[in-house]
Design a binder for these strands. Structure first.
Lengths: 372, 372
DNA sequence: CTGAAAGCGCTTACAG
DNA sequence: CTGAAAGCGCTTACAG
């Protein structure tokens, strides 16, 4: 509110406190009132270091006074790049999507970026051309993709061709560290395996997701590795291939539970399939966890709606979204100071609820904590 | 591909088939090649009727040939209005959100509009100023809101002040017909009531949503009206106020089921609360539907994960999103030809599953179909 | 460290 | 029915 601005505030604008325009203020208003060129205002907006600090302060004061906020459309036009972040996904699980979006929005909060959502079907014949049109038309600032979309190498080859920055979140290292966030599904599955083994289960089953999701193999691999670390092996007879759907979980569950030597514990590639196993157990007259231990993956809200509440490997969905967005907005932040791998890694954790117990007649042994 | 364009396609561009620019074509390229002014091209883009049809055809041909698509940012800047639709919501139910978004995207498909998502908290002290900044900064084309966001009169007063078009989807007539989509929650709840009455239930309970959602009273009112039509009354002793959450459903369920004369049927304001009632019934050692009939509302995926599968009133979420977006994009479409009310109305329907049965010892009577 | 000119790709008056 | 000029609100070279 320095009085120097008296002159700048002519043209019907009152000086000091009440400086207010009827229309939204533009960079020209700021420049005029601060008595500098719009180019200098632009420098302040874009945090150029080449502005005298007095000048910067004066401009910032006027910006605040006016409540000026640069028009993202105009900036985008001049920059040849918009301030829109695209979230491309094909995951059918609503709570997964909404949580990830929430994380992205956390990172975008108070920025001038907006989140544009774009569900898409990788199998559609127009998939790639649709994505090309989307990115080109909107001149997207960048794109964030979750599994299984993030696993589509053709898509990201296209993004590189279009010069569109992206971040892929996946359970497998698929790209340069700067372009992805790695979620260690492997670890989470291994933890589930160790837990099941510690409870004393030996006839242990696994229901995998579909082969079109890389996480299917990763979760299966992690589970097998976890069992192995406890001296068990994952018997192929106890492995079923599901499709990450409730129905497939039900089918695989029925198949497993009708075996002569049925498993006493089932690890499911996700919670939806675990819900299917619950249904199959119910139909077979088996009680969870007394007769059957079930562990899920995702830790979706469903876990607490089922009875008994389902133990599940929690994916840090919100963090995944937030970190992906942060990486997109600050690509330089990834240049680590030292030589360590700048790859961002996130870790799932097993959430214990009431769907697990030792197999009938077995007292749980704590192999890892109590050496025999 | 008329050969007249030979001249237009100079500057290193091959004529005919392979006309291709290295950069994205602009309105100037189209104008030059079609040998008209860019203003005329603009007229074609904007479907102005004042273009000779030959001229229009020629221009459209060039547009197609070049694969030209106008830059939404540049148009937005000139129009002083973007091509972004904001989806503002506070509903915590992910499947609700995702389904509505899918509907909105259906309507936006192949348009140059994009969907920008914006969860927000009505109770936040900065709520209105945040919304103002969002709308002003992005110069939103329009906004779509679902309950309870859609019920916030202050928000839409602001939208009118900002001259931002909007569509409110709600269970109550809150605005002019052109600015809203009405969903008859009342009807769906009444249908549930009639069904329960026909099964022979007389001790019938209702768990409502929170008073901050208008749908809470509407669903309760519809249910009471439906019972009344069957000669029953909704006894206030059997009414509980929940919060549309699983936990609140559990609490209210426990409260109802611990009554000396406990209800034999419970209608829940949404599926989440119905899941809570399932849990309460389980804890009380009651079996659904033998000992207790439960009906939900929303018809979320949860209905099929619960055991037994939950009967529920289906909300046409995807249609709600689609119609709201269509109304926003074609405000003129609502001017009905005749004098009939142009208000768009959608109707929920009861989906029968296995959570309902006659009360113990009662043979269901078909009051509506079979007059005694 | 700062500014005048030109331009991003479109549309709005205004002419004819 | 069609076009030349000016402008939307910003930034990029280019000077100084």
């Amino acid at each position: 509110m320095s009085s120097k601005e008296g002159r700048g505030a002519v043209e019907g604008l009152g000086a000091g406190e009440g400086v207010e325009l009827r229309r939204k203020p533009t960079i020209n208003d700021v420049a005029r009132i601060a008595q500098v060129s719009k180019k200098t205002v632009s420098r302040v907006i874009n945090r150029s270091p080449f502005v005298k600090s007095e000048t910067r302060d004066k401009i910032n004061e006027v910006i605040e006074q006016l409540g000026f906020s640069p028009d993202p459309q105009a900036r985008g036009l001049a920059f040849r790049r918009s301030f829109l972040i695209g979230h491309i996904y094909d995951n059918p699980n609503p709570s997964y999507i909404v949580n990830v979006q929430q994380g992205i929005l956390d990172a975008l909060y108070d920025s001038s970026f907006e989140l544009v959502v774009r569900p898409a079907d990788r199998r559609s014949p127009t998939f790639l051309s649709d994505m090309r049109a989307f990115v080109e038309r909107q001149k997207l600032f960048g794109v964030i993709a979750m599994p299984s979309m993030s696993e589509d190498d053709d898509l990201f080859a296209l993004m590189r061709e279009l010069d569109c920055p992206y971040v892929r979140v996946a359970a497998v290292k698929l790209d340069e560290p700067g372009r992805m966030i790695l979620v260690q599904d492997h670890e989470g599955a291994a933890e589930a395996a160790r837990y099941v083994a510690e409870l004393g289960h030996e006839r242990v089953a696994f229901i995998s997701g579909p082969p079109t999701f890389r996480s299917s193999e990763v979760r299966g691999g992690g589970f097998a590795a976890g069992l192995k670390s406890q001296g068990l092996t994952l018997d192929p007879r106890y492995v079923r291939q599901g499709a990450y759907t409730f129905e497939s979980g039900l089918e695989c569950g029925e198949s497993l539970l009708s075996m002569k030597e049925r498993p006493t514990a089932i690890f499911c590639g996700n919670d939806e399939m675990a819900a299917g196993v619950y249904r199959a157990a119910h139909a077979a007259g088996l009680e969870i966890p007394t007769d059957l231990t079930v562990i899920g993956f995702d830790d979706s809200p469903l876990t607490q709606r089922l009875w008994p509440p389902l133990s599940s490997v929690r994916l840090p969905l919100r963090d995944m979204g937030r970190m992906a967005a942060e990486r997109l907005l600050n690509p330089e932040a990834q240049e680590s100071e030292d030589d360590s791998d700048p790859l961002t890694v996130l870790h799932p954790t097993l959430i214990h609820r009431e769907s697990s117990a030792p197999p009938v007649g077995v007292t749980p042994k704590k192999r890892t904590t109590q050496p025999a």
